[in-house]
Design a protein around this nucleic acid. Structure first.
Lengths: 349, 349
DNA sequence: TTGTAGGCGTTATCAG
DNA sequence: CTGATAACGCCTACAA
């Protein structure tokens, strides 16, 4: 490997001068700079960051610890957000996945520490309460898409499931729906309760009473291995004599099931029933026809802003108790098209 | 940061002795070992890998370069396969995403070189021909889920799209289908042509003639921004007077569209029409009811085995021209259930 | 079995 | 503006 000394020799200067040029330090003659840069290009010199870091005790590496990669594919956008932040700020990203195994997670923290990385983004692939098992290892860390268990002092950044669900429900009420079904997500998910509570609150605020709402449990059991009732429940709810005009699903994958159930009953969407989801999981939300009205989770921004929070923390400007919450926007699409206009439309036909 | 010298002082030995204990070198008294380990535990000492690597010129870090993370979510399993391999072999993973930008990719290679990583896994998120822009940077690399452009000497590991498609088609023919529709993937995808060719070859080998096959283009345009005709084409094909009894879709997301089209026409799956996909993109393939018969892409193994190939290459045992191809297995599910048994079944009713 | 000297590639300090 | 010199944390080589 070509080192700073080789460059120095070729350029006819000292190694420190090369270092100055590489690091754009002031007080170097333009002429010298040019000679050095020529030598660098000539030799294909690339600085050794490991060597640099043992002197400066900062590596400019941030680590990502993820739990379950496979379960919710699009949450990989969190990682993408982190990476883009890293590129924009001259950092590199070290990645590790625990698969939910605490022992392996302990190893990951130690390995990261061994690499002397600047900080850790502890990323949950679905919104939940977490308890990092960092053990004795002290590295600045920010929890992303997750929330620290009581007593743990980590800053965190999370999506506003409650707000998104509230807005989505208001959207339905504004469209005139007065009888609404709701198929619940796995209750073990943090977002599940927030979404349901917001739905109930918005329904109440919109003048609907409990008897206007039909609430069903869509799945239960350990996360990633749940028993799924969604299709059956959707069939059931949509077969009721006083079936709801709108069906809210805990997430987009559940909405897919509801679509299939509705179609197999011969119902048209949105003419006969409006269906909405949550997550804006595009493979589903854009794959369904008509496209699915849903709520976009700000995965990418969770990653980007999480990295930003971590950076502040590393620089000593952050707070251990910061809790940032990101907006979840309703994305209106065809599955909740305005039925009054549809009515007009069919009146024309 | 606590260093090897701190441990040495506390344990009352020289720093070299600590180094010996840490690296499990022979010729240290059990007693000394214990004293050192005690001091290590006491101080929470964790070796600095950066310092180690500047001496040994191997970092035990491998890099992953990905292109488009978002387009095909489950290909993140490739990364998971790499990570699991890394954990099992004491390596750490640096991650970078190019977003398909050549300039950014150049930076990534340089950054990786600066970290003196041992090797690179160049991972395409969909199966395609690639041309890594490593520039002057020489790092051992293996192409994963991709294929080098002519003239580029990289080993590669890829899925056997052809074999998977061939087997899938034979599966349909074995079930008695004699009139089969096919909706094509974006022709720009490497897998697209392989899948279509295998379909045609298997159909021919199964005694079907061209007139038994109905081939449609499902989408076209730049990858990630294609114009999508799948739903329309599926509606059209399934409305033909002599509609096919089976419809093969280029991938599972297209199969989703075909399901929706079939259901909206009042057709039942698989009773009236069999639909199959490709990829085993579980959100779709297991989300559809009945579940989707498809072909599993060996994403995880591509990652794991790709890492293994890279390791051999780094150790000088690999070949620049190795091309490994992984089997793609048919996953039979409800969407292609045997219709003869279904017939019997309905005869009972 | 253990310790010392020196060097890996880089940057900090300070002198010139 | 430039260059010695030392130091970072660790490991290799050799000596004790």
């Amino acid at each position: 490997m070509v080192s700073i000394k080789d460059v120095a020799r070729v350029a006819g200067v000292s190694d420190k001068t090369v270092s100055r040029v590489v690091n754009r330090e002031p007080n170097v003659t333009p002429d010298t700079i040019e000679r050095v840069q020529l030598a660098i290009a000539d030799l294909g010199y690339i600085p050794n960051l490991a060597a640099r870091s043992i002197r400066s005790s900062r590596t400019n590496i941030i680590g990502i610890i993820t739990d379950f990669i496979s379960t919710t594919p699009y949450s990989g956008d969190i990682v993408r957000g982190v990476q883009d932040w890293a590129v924009a700020h001259g950092r590199t990203v070290l990645l590790a996945n625990t698969g939910g195994d605490a022992e392996r997670e302990g190893d990951v923290w130690r390995t990261f520490k061994a690499h002397r990385i600047d900080g850790v983004l502890y990323v949950a692939m679905y919104h939940r309460v977490v308890m990092p098992t960092a053990g004795e290892v002290k590295i600045p860390a920010v929890l992303v898409n997750s929330h620290p268990e009581d007593g743990l002092a980590y800053p965190s950044i999370e999506p506003d499931d409650y707000g998104g669900s509230y807005d989505l429900t208001r959207h339905l009420i504004a469209l005139g729906h007065r009888r609404i079904g709701y198929i619940r997500l796995n209750p073990l998910l943090l977002g599940a309760n927030q979404r349901l509570e917001a739905f109930l609150a918005a329904a109440k605020a919109g003048g609907l009473s409990d008897s206007d709402l039909i609430i069903r449990l869509g799945m239960e059991g350990p996360i990633g291995h749940e028993t799924n009732y969604v299709y059956r429940e959707a069939l059931d709810v949509l077969s009721l004599p006083d079936r709801p005009t709108a069906l809210v699903c805990g997430n987009d994958e559940m909405a897919l099931q509801a679509y299939l159930a509705a179609l197999s009953l011969g119902l048209r969407i949105p003419d006969d029933v409006t269906i909405v989801g949550f997550d804006d999981f595009r493979t589903v939300s854009l794959g369904l026809k008509p496209e699915l009205t849903t709520v976009a989770l700000p995965y990418y921004d969770l990653g980007w802003q999480g990295a930003d929070m971590l950076d502040k923390l590393v620089q000593g400007k952050g707070s251990e108790s910061e809790r940032r919450v990101l907006n979840c926007a309703v994305v209106p699409r065809g599955s909740s098209a305005d039925r009054s206009s549809i009515l007009e439309h069919s009146n024309l036909g």
